[in-house]
Design a protein around this nucleic acid. Structure first.
Length: 743
DNA sequence: CTAGGGTTAG
């Protein structure tokens, strides 16, 4: 048969930046293999040394050989010492005719990053250039599909596997099982599993992980028990499966059994077990393992294990030891930073969390999604909106397609709402393509907190129209919207529908909101009926809200009995004593005030100091009552004097009963003692341009005096002032507050 | 050159 001459041009997509030059013919293999530049390659531990070796290769002409290039790429892609993937990609793009090994190496690298799209693009490019994938290609590709949560692509790859007859390859077979299992498609995984008669440990382990990640620990255990020859990995998979599903006891039990059977634990075992200890609070076993590890095995130098210990100690409350271990690390990775930052957030040490985050940035470590999920709540607590905004930009720029995208947005909504910028929160919410239930919930809570009950309920009906079922948290959000706005009847209606319409068993929080609403309205009888009716004991928050209601309605008798309950439940909480003494003071019962103070002093308890913070130019400034520690203290107090004069001129009369109830030593400083929020506002006024909105965060509730004063200040200085107290937001503008004096 | 498990948050 005569071939056409000249041959027809190759159909090559024009968009590829490839130069189809004739491939350079590689020199004999032996020369290549022993070439000095190539032996240098394996010693490269930094990005810099890699580039130098690459330069060597260019000098000697090795860069034109596919063999040397594949070695170079492989090193870039697998090196644990640095992230060489971007460099690999840039080198790859210069290769004139990459061979199958090189394509596979690139896919290998892309599979370990979690970038499915790039991996698929690479595969499509490879195939459309006429390469036929082989059994080495698919495991990499399937790993990419397993990591992302879309199994559609995985199924298409499966079809390609079948077309090429690669399903008989052991590696491909297990990769397919794992891909389906990790995507939650256990039926499909099982089908692939059953096509082979040989049930090796590896396939079984893939299924164990799949069952466990879907919450089906029993099927996982059944599979585990069926394995005749278990290896470390299968033990680890089962232990992790238990940990993931909260079965810490079983996990630790299995670990002990594993030790009894003389299976030597590896790094992965310890990491899982330590995670179980951390989450279940088994600090003793954790310490035991710590001494064990220090004594025998060489695990002390393993970064992953040290990180696991940092997690253990910071979760179990020993932040000192955790930060000691962290400081002792000569080489920290993202996880080390994330773990300690998360530990600080966990222990409510928000300032420390933010400081460590800033140190992380200075050190040159790039934060990832997990970092942000720890840092954003810290911003939210402290009202650090500038840092929060910075993080928002960072997420948009650098964390575009990460797996936790939805969680990150939800965390941003919460951060903006808690930092006082409800509009920004709303914008983030509206920009979300895939809204999860928790993002709806976060937005509803945001509106509730800002006293915008209408917006909360509008959002709720939008949510229902979108066919989304509310959960218990959604309904707490709605109830708290009612309780922040005093919507008693609507609250009653929602409370009823919790059980009747949504088939949700009311939790303590639902009862709490309802009791708060009733107490606020002075309906103590009804509130107490609910307390008798509910199946659980009320907590401190509930008694506290009733106590506050008593103060508002001047109900001394009930106040005493509620305070009694509160002291029983939380004997070390000074709040109950302070509240009760305030109530006595309002009623003029000074001997009772003195008596309570004595009890308080006798127990060595101290009133929690009011603390307000304001963020100016990304720096959070904290103030406590009467505080003179700030470097600009003199200017602040000068401003306060001016404010007091103007307030008086505007007709402001302080409520003296609130002044009189201050503690003795505080009273010495007179009636002009300034609450922390006023200090923060004064500082805000002198540190920002006229007309700038001020946002203040306070740890306690705003007192009536300060509330009145702030209303006037917003008018006198023509400033919008947003203040967050313990439970909600107040937006002061032109002499009025968004809460309409109901809080 | 390949497959199963393993740190951080929620």
């Amino acid at each position: 048969m005569a071939l056409p001459y000249p041959p027809p041009p190759l159909a090559v997509p024009s968009s590829y930046p490839f130069h189809f030059l004739p491939s350079s013919s590689d020199p004999p293999y032996d020369i290549l293999r022993t070439h000095p530049s190539l032996s240098l390659l394996s010693n490269c531990r930094t990005h810099q040394s890699l580039r130098e070796t690459h330069a060597q290769m260019v000098k000697t002409g090795l860069h034109n050989t596919n063999y040397a290039l594949s070695k170079l790429l492989e090193l870039c892609v697998v090196s644990p010492h640095f992230d060489g993937l971007p460099y690999a990609v840039s080198v790859f793009e210069t290769i004139q005719e990459p061979n199958l090994l090189i394509w596979n190496t690139m896919l290998r690298g892309l599979a370990s990053s979690s970038d499915l799209v790039s991996a698929l693009e690479m595969y499509v490019r490879m195939v459309s250039l006429g390469h036929v994938p082989n059994a080495y290609t698919f495991p990499f590709l399937l790993k990419s599909c397993a990591k992302s949560k879309t199994f559609e692509e995985g199924r298409q790859i499966h079809a390609q596997v079948m077309k090429l007859g690669c399903e008989v390859d052991r590696y491909v077979h297990t990769s397919l099982i794992s891909m389906y299992a990790r995507n939650g498609r256990l039926e499909d995984a099982r089908k692939v599993f059953d096509t082979s008669s040989q049930r090796d440990v590896v396939s079984c382990t893939a299924l164990i992980t799949g069952y466990a990640s879907r919450g089906d620990v029993r099927s996982a255990r059944k599979m585990f028990d069926e394995i005749t020859e278990r290896d470390v990995v299968s033990w680890n998979a089962m232990i992790t499966g238990y940990v993931e599903n909260g079965g810490y006891e079983e996990a630790l039990e299995l670990f002990k059994e594993m030790m009894r059977m003389n299976v030597r634990p590896d790094e992965g075992t310890l990491v899982s077990v330590l995670s179980a200890c951390a989450q279940s609070g088994s600090i003793e076993l954790g310490r035991e393992i710590h001494t064990l590890v220090d004594d025998h095995h060489g695990f002390g130098s393993s970064l992953k294990i040290v990180n696991a210990f940092i997690g253990l100690y910071s979760k179990c409350g020993d932040v000192e030891i955790a930060s000691g271990l962290f400081e002792g690390l000569s080489c920290k990775d993202v996880v080390s930073w994330n773990t300690l930052i998360g530990g600080y957030t966990h222990m409510n040490l928000y300032k420390e969390a933010l400081l460590l985050f800033q140190e992380m940035l200075r050190s040159g470590e790039s934060p990832n999604d997990v970092t942000m999920l720890s840092v954003l709540p810290a911003c939210a607590h402290l009202g650090a909106i500038d840092i929060g905004r910075w993080i928002h930009v960072y997420i948009d720029k650098r964390l575009k397609g990460v797996t936790n995208g939805s969680a990150l947005r939800t965390s941003l909504i919460d951060m903006y709402a808690k930092c006082g910028d409800i509009e920004a929160a709303h914008q983030v919410f509206n920009s979300m393509m895939h809204k999860s239930l928790s993002s709806w919930n976060a937005m509803i809570f945001g509106f509730a907190m800002h006293g915008r009950a209408n917006a909360a309920f509008d959002l709720f009906s939008r949510m229902r129209k979108n066919g989304i079922e509310p959960d218990d948290i959604t309904l707490v959000g709605l109830l708290s919207a009612c309780s922040h706005s005093g919507l008693l009847d609507l609250g009653r209606h929602i409370f009823k529908s919790v059980t009747q319409d949504y088939n949700i068993t009311p939790k303590l929080e639902h009862y709490g909101c309802m009791i708060d609403l009733l107490g606020h309205a002075g309906l103590f009888k009804e509130a107490e009926e609910i307390i008798h009716m509910m199946p659980m004991e009320p907590d401190g928050v509930i008694w506290c809200s009733l106590l506050k209601a008593c103060k508002m309605h001047g109900n001394l008798e009930l106040a005493e009995s509620f305070a009694q309950k509160l002291m029983e439940i939380e004997p070390e909480n000074s709040g109950s004593y302070v509240l009760l003494s305030n109530i006595y003071a309002t009623a003029g019962r000074w001997e009772d005030v003195a008596r309570i103070r004595e009890v308080l002093n006798g127990k060595g308890m101290k009133k929690v100091p009011g603390c307000s913070s304001i963020e100016i130019d990304s720096v959070v400034h904290e103030f406590i009552i009467g505080d003179k520690l700030h470097p600009q203290s003199r200017e602040i107090y000068r401003m306060l004097e001016e404010m007091d004069v103007l307030l008086e001129e505007a007709g402001f009369v302080p409520d003296t009963s609130e002044v009189l109830q201050e503690m003795e030593e505080e009273r010495k400083e007179g009636a002009l003692r300034h609450h922390s929020e006023k200090l923060a506002i004064a500082f805000g006024l002198i540190s920002t341009k006229p007309g700038t909105k001020l946002t203040v965060v306070k740890n306690l509730r705003v007192c009536r005096n300060c509330h009145e004063a702030t209303k006037l200040i917003s008018k006198i200085y023509n400033r919008e002032i947003v203040a967050r107290d313990r439970t909600r937001f107040h937006h002061f503008r032109d002499g009025v507050c968004s809460c309409c004096d109901y809080w």
